[in-house]
Design a protein around this nucleic acid. Structure first.
Lengths: 339, 339
DNA sequence: GTGAAAGCGCTAACAC
DNA sequence: GTGTTAGCGCTTTCAC
């Protein structure tokens, strides 16, 4: 009832292979490590015996002696946000190529849950990729003292980071809206704990000053569809013709909310978002958005993490910046003149 | 360059705690296991010392002796399919409540990748939940001989399974369409490797016979938006007024494709899907769909897995069936009479 | 209730 | 290149 009588699930050990092959256990071990420092034919014989006996090296025991598990943790802010799926794919590809396994941790937009889950995973992983972490800088630094850490979508001094070119993205968005005749942009904020949210807003601010556009900010709101719908209330009190949202999901919610109020996008209001998730292409109107190279982000972060695990120095200093591009679709249009 | 000079990352060991607390290592071990078979005050003293020294029990070493890692693997068919996010949440909640960690494996709709990833994870997990597995029955049985396995969205004899009430769902869908005046339903197939796809089709077939509706099937197509778009080609060659798709994503793609061809949903064609993912509510038209209790599925499967890990007998025999309900939204309408 | 000793399966260090 | 020895940090008999 209480303690599990689980069958120990007998596995063939390195000793049985050694015995059968007529060599020492250490030789078997060497035959299975790379580079295999064993005579070619001895290695072959060992391999055959191992095969026949169904021997599989125990990652647990190996980890206990080497203190390396060949597992990396990938923490994402919210598994329900499609923005992470491509990142995950990129990270997994990079990890698999290097013979590493990825474990995914869903922070559920909570710094507390993120921290708890990560603490629990910490002892069994060789390194950590933090994608859009909601934890504080100091907590992240604390983790980075225990294990190699690479941060994605965020810049923290002294911790290696991979970010997208948010300033360029915000600027391209502003330019696009300006070209369409808009002279006032409203930024719809995502979570305050999001570093990307801060930089996106500040970059927009700067771009608008330079382009001589008026700009203001509302929020913060949840970085999802409901958040966007909520934002409509505030937007209604302070009308505008052009909006930049923290991410695609919020733009989708915003457009829905506006629609309910009878305001049409893009006829009445132009909307631009960030990220370029797949659904942005299937909603009506299709979203104009600042596209991030999601797969590449995940891959780049993981690759750098793996070099750190192999002893390379952390790339501190400037974060690695990945380019963005503006994808113009149907949620932006020329500002209506007159009324 | 080749071998990692990783700092061994000194952790406090059970010996240091034992020394400091003036007890034997085994006593420390006992103090940290439940139920703690140690004098209450001794236990308290040990706990304090441990706390002070920052002692954390090593899951690796523990796993090596107990052969239990307190990790369960959750394999999902495709991380980009939102249908899995709630299942994952449900599974994680159940696991966390029992002090287990979940590792997520994305099979990327490939039985080969699924198998490879799972084989690699196998030695380090106590059990496996297979959500919408694309592997063959025999492969799944093979895994279930190595470790406790619970299968989600699929029924396999002699392996414990959690499924939704697909027959009831298909029937409700057919009834709904019949009530709207449709007398012919086209089923748009998902992947052949999907068990759910098979049962959904067969159930529809039965329901239609009973309700005296005509029915046919097209496909198979990929279980995603592109798959739905592709299906339009075939649908065009064999027109219909009512469609049931394997899942929501395909319905979304199908509706887009129809739209491009000038056919309107629901005016010209009614569409019903399965699953009830969140985006089904935000697309235009909003999807009518057979809603599955996604969170509950994940939780139920994981809970049963945990009992098996604790030595309870596998619930073979009949699969656990969870109820579905038809959510009527805007993608279905009364059949146009005349032309 | 607690201590001593043995060992989980593997790798590292040192001989030869 | 290969064998020998000594653990990694913990749990688990078996005594007492």
């Amino acid at each position: 009832m209480s303690e599990p009588p689980r069958p120990p699930n007998k596995r063939t050990t390195i000793y049985q292979v050694a015995l059968e092959a007529g060599v020492a256990p250490s030789t078997v071990s060497r035959a299975f490590s790379r580079p295999s420092r064993v005579n070619a034919d001895t290695a072959e014989r060992i391999r055959q015996v191992a095969e026949r006996l169904g021997y599989r090296t125990s990652p647990l025991a190996r980890a206990l002696t080497t203190s390396r598990t060949r597992i990396v943790a990938l923490v994402i802010a919210d598994i329900s946000n499609p923005v992470f799926t491509e990142m995950v794919r990129g990270a997994q590809e990079a990890a698999n190529d290097a013979d590493y396994t990825t474990v995914l941790i869903d922070a559920q937009e909570s710094d507390r849950l993120e921290r708890t889950a990560l603490e629990r995973a910490l002892p069994s992983v060789d390194g950590i990729v933090l994608a859009s972490s909601r934890m504080s800088d100091s907590t992240i630094r604390w983790f980075s003292k225990q294990r190699p850490v690479v941060v994605l979508n965020r810049a923290i001094p002294d911790v290696p980071c991979v970010v997208t070119d948010n300033p360029q993205g915000a600027r391209r968005a502003a330019e696009h809206l300006a070209e369409l005749g808009h002279d006032h942009i409203t930024y719809v904020s995502g979570p305050e704990a999001s570093w990307a949210n801060g930089i996106r807003w500040r970059s927009l601010l700067e771009a608008c000053i330079e382009l001589k556009l008026k700009v203001r900010r509302i929020g913060p709101f949840s970085p999802n569809i409901e958040g966007g719908e909520t934002a409509v209330e505030e937007l209604r009190r302070r009308p505008t013709t052009a909006v930049l949202t923290y991410n695609d999901l919020m733009a989708i919610g915003l457009i829905r909310g506006l629609d309910r109020l009878g305001a049409k996008v893009p006829a009445d209001i132009s909307v631009i978002a960030f990220d370029n998730i797949v659904v942005g292409e299937i909603v009506t109107p299709r979203l104009t958005t600042v596209a991030a190279p999601l797969f590449a982000e995940g891959a780049a972060a993981t690759k750098h993490l793996l070099t750190m695990i192999d002893g390379a120095p952390a790339r501190t200093g400037q974060p690695m910046v990945l380019p963005v591009r503006l994808v113009v679709r149907d949620s932006t249009a020329r500002r209506r003149t007159g009324r």
